[in-house]
């Protein structure tokens, strides 16, 4: 039988309200308070333990609280972790989000919680944790538990996830494809023409891709003195030594390479080439400097316009590469830049 561990706060554990909000975490066998409703709704799973923690303790001493809870869970790691429902209680919502995320990361098991849309925990954790849309207060306990546990039962028995909307949890920005029944009305052609007709008539329609607002990145300050700057070159154009020693993929790359250019005045054709599959490689292979401008950088180095060029360039392939992979690769590259005292980067994309 599959196992579940639940997390609730001091109030739902029935040990007290505000006066017990600094309660340190403890674990108890079986169900406590509302966890009985969770157990009742579970089809083929057993709640083995209930974790309890005061909301203020979790909020003010988060690191300690999380560490302690993860410690308490050792030896009782379940198949699924459930926190809440937290309704509109802000501190409880943050606690549920925090602990779900920590448990997921530490034990690689799914974690679920439930909150009202106005709970600040929703905005903070919706991208990391599956949060079901819940009611304002405990009168909705039954309904909220039902919704969440319907999904828990599916998850535990290996049935497919029908998607955030169908299951009733907040969208996470995680988009996957879904197959529709095989009929003309479901073809993209029919959907497109009918969407246009509704748009024409001012009738409601639903775009299948809502464009999210763009993310702003804080601007890094300029280098104060270019003539002392150490500049590094990074490319997503897939320029690599001809034998592609790091076996960087030509699309959907997960690997990157770091190539020594000390003593080189330019990138020679035949020595370097591109393995990027998203564009016509003829020009880049004939003269790799059109992608990684080593020759021009050397000229500026000689002129003293920059202090010096970092002795390596970094390369991967941009096409089809996920943001998560790109982020990881950048994080792996950064220590190399820091170690050499690099002060600025020229990033070339194809």
């Amino acid at each position: 039988m599959k196992t579940v561990v639940c997390y609730i706060n001091q109030f739902f554990a029935g040990i007290g309200g505000e006066e017990k909000a600094y309660q340190e975490p403890y674990i108890q066998e079986g169900c406590v308070g509302p966890v009985q409703a969770i157990q009742a709704a579970l089809e083929d799973a057993q709640v083995t333990h209930t974790l309890v923690c005061g909301d203020n303790y979790m909020g003010s001493d988060t690191e300690k609280a999380v560490a302690r809870i993860l410690e308490l869970l050792e030896g009782h790691v379940p198949d699924l972790f459930i926190a809440g429902p937290a309704f509109q209680a802000g501190r409880y919502g943050l606690a549920c989000g925090t602990i779900c995320q920590a448990v997921q990361e530490k034990f690689s098991i799914p974690a679920l919680t439930s909150m009202h849309p106005e709970n600040p925990g929703v905005e903070m954790f919706r991208q990391k944790v599956i949060i079901f849309q819940g009611g304002k207060g405990a009168v909705k306990m039954r309904a909220d538990v039902q919704t969440m546990i319907r999904f828990a039962n599916k998850l535990l028995s290996g049935q497919p996830n029908e998607g955030a909307e169908a299951e009733g949890y907040f969208p996470r920005g995680c988009r996957h494809e879904k197959f529709l029944e095989d009929k003309r009305e479901n073809t993209a052609a029919y959907r497109g023409v009918q969407m246009l007709i509704r748009k024409m008539h001012g009738q409601p329609y639903r775009t299948e891709l809502a464009i999210p607002a763009p993310e702003q990145v804080p601007i890094a300050p300029a280098v104060s003195d270019l003539s002392h700057a150490v500049v590094a070159m990074v490319t997503s154009g897939g320029i690599v030594p001809s034998d592609n020693p790091d076996r960087i993929q030509s699309a959907s790359a997960t690997r990157w390479g770091r190539y020594d250019i000390s003593g080189m005045e330019r990138l020679e054709a035949g020595v370097f080439k591109t393995i990027h599959a998203g564009f016509d490689p003829t020009a880049a292979n004939a003269d790799p400097n059109v992608v990684v401008p080593l020759d021009a950088m050397r000229a500026y180095e000689k002129e003293g316009k920059i202090g010096r060029l970092h002795p390596y360039f970094y390369s991967t392939v941009g096409t089809g590469t996920t943001e998560a992979e790109a982020r990881r690769m950048a994080q792996e590259i950064i220590p190399h830049l820091v170690a050499d005292g690099v002060t600025a980067v020229i990033l070339g994309s194809t």
Binding site: A164, E165, R175, A188
Partner: peptide, 8 residues
């Protein structure tokens, strides 16, 4: 196409 995209 009989596919669409959804939030999961």
């Amino acid at each position: 196409s009989l596919k669409t995209m959804a939030e999961f």
